[in-house]
Design a binder for these strands. Structure first.
Lengths: 249, 249
DNA sequence: AGAAAATTTGCTGTTTTATGCAATATATTT
DNA sequence: AAATATATTGCATAAAACAGCAAATTTTCT
């Protein structure tokens, strides 16, 4: 195995799980601990990760951007984000919504993938700044303090002039019958606009939210092209969604 | 578990609940109390939190000045920001530029002051989110990775439709003769638009930048209404600016 | 292709760091 | 003041980092 490959593997591991142990990775790659240590040292001096006693941690872990350790159900969300990343193709023009799941998606975009990403979300935009090959376009507007995204008429207006290859969106609540719903009216308005502006709308949603609903409706479930949960697509919990014309991932 | 992970967890806990008990966290992390104690001690000397008898508390808890990291010439910038804050009046509609000085201004806006703040800067917008009485409006656009602000035609276009009471701006270089100049052309374009959109343009600038210049020109010094440095307005270094019709603060 | 040079890798012994434990001291509470 | 909880110190152990060296591999050059 080439040094490059090894270092790539280490980096992937770090980006994915925020950390690695030298011993683990040495065993997995079947090289001596010294080699791994040297690799990590190099990657550290290249500022690709941060070497610490016993292993290495992601830069995101230390830097101001996203010290996301208290995200609820982080593992599930990472799982979802990984599936979403697999949809991305070189040169795609995509929209990434706010919320912790979408933030994970932003975080897991591979360094070398060239993309144009639109977003309404401040944290997502911040996260994307660390991706050298991603052009970041923030759609501005009045900022919602809780959701940390742009909302309001001017925002919606801007959205009408764009078409995304994929719109990756989250939702507060989802139900096979009542579709996507939210607690907040303003948020529903921008989400509607996003879905309209997306050739394909991809819903990222942890299974815990399935079969829940709230006051304001964003769209019918049919408006969603692909739905990603942390579950296996064949899981029984998804049966109700299988009837609709939705791709499950 | 790596030491850094542990410390991260402790920090999160502190930031979240403003305090932790050493015994609690030791049990949760399944390490000895000594280890936690040592971690907390380290974090304390790094000024990430404050160690107290039996546990640790958040910095925000002790000092009103938030946990600021490693800004260059921070004290000067705080000084400038404080003067700028004194210009703010209840209900003002202002623009706040990017850069560390302006970020300090955003940070120092009093909690109870009611304002409408426009900005192009992601960090400034994030900072403003913690101000309950500030309406934050982010002007969107293509995001400059280095400057972390929105740039480009659509951004400039949006700026033409607004008038701010005050536009608080920074600059890369300033000179009494050559005016405000920058290293980056795109940035000059948006700054021009901001100055146009401001009834009064207020320049925030540490004295170190006085009498320096660069390639692209933002505006003449006369376009600036008020100039704030960390120096006393009577300081000799400001003599060259006194001739112009500028208010020094 | 084959030799020489440069790089990479694994191994050795040594040094440093991290952690837990116990004894003692200090602070806090009742 | 006594009882309890928390801090400090020194020490022992294990794990990890480091430095130097030699074997193995890759690259470069003829």
């Amino acid at each position: 195995m080439l040094k490059e490959e090894r270092q790539r593997t280490i980096l992937n591991e770090v980006e994915l799980h925020n950390r690695v142990l030298l011993t683990d990775i040495a065993e997995r790659l079947d090289v001596s601990i010294d080699t791994v240590r040297r690799d990590v040292k190099e990657l550290d001096t290249e500022n690709k990760l941060r070497k610490v006693h016993g292993g290495a941690i992601s830069l995101a872990f230390t830097s101001p951007t996203a010290p996301n350790n208290n995200t609820y159900a982080l593992q599930e969300k990472i799982n979802i984000a990984e599936k979403a990343v697999s949809l991305l193709k070189e040169g795609s023009v995509v929209f990434i919504d706010g919320g912790t799941t979408c933030l994970e998606l932003a975080r897991l975009i591979p360094q070398r993938l060239q993309l144009t990403c639109f977003t309404l979300s401040l944290p997502v935009a911040m996260q994307l700044l660390s991706k050298p090959n991603v052009e970041v376009i923030l759609i501005g507007g009045r900022i919602s303090k809780e959701a940390q995204i742009a909302i309001g008429a001017s925002t919606i207006n801007e959205l009408t002039a764009i078409k995304f290859d994929y719109g990756f969106i989250g939702t507060g609540y989802v139900d096979s019958l009542h579709g996507l719903t939210e607690f907040d009216w303003d948020i529903v308005q921008v989400k509607k606009a996003v879905i309209n502006a997306s050739k394909k709308a991809v819903l990222l949603c942890i299974s815990e939210k399935l079969n829940s609903q709230h006051r304001y409706k964003t769209c019918d479930i049919n408006a969603i092209n692909t739905m990603i949960t942390e579950l296996d697509p064949s899981n029984n919990l998804l049966n109700l969604f299988r009837n609709h014309d939705i791709r499950l991932l």
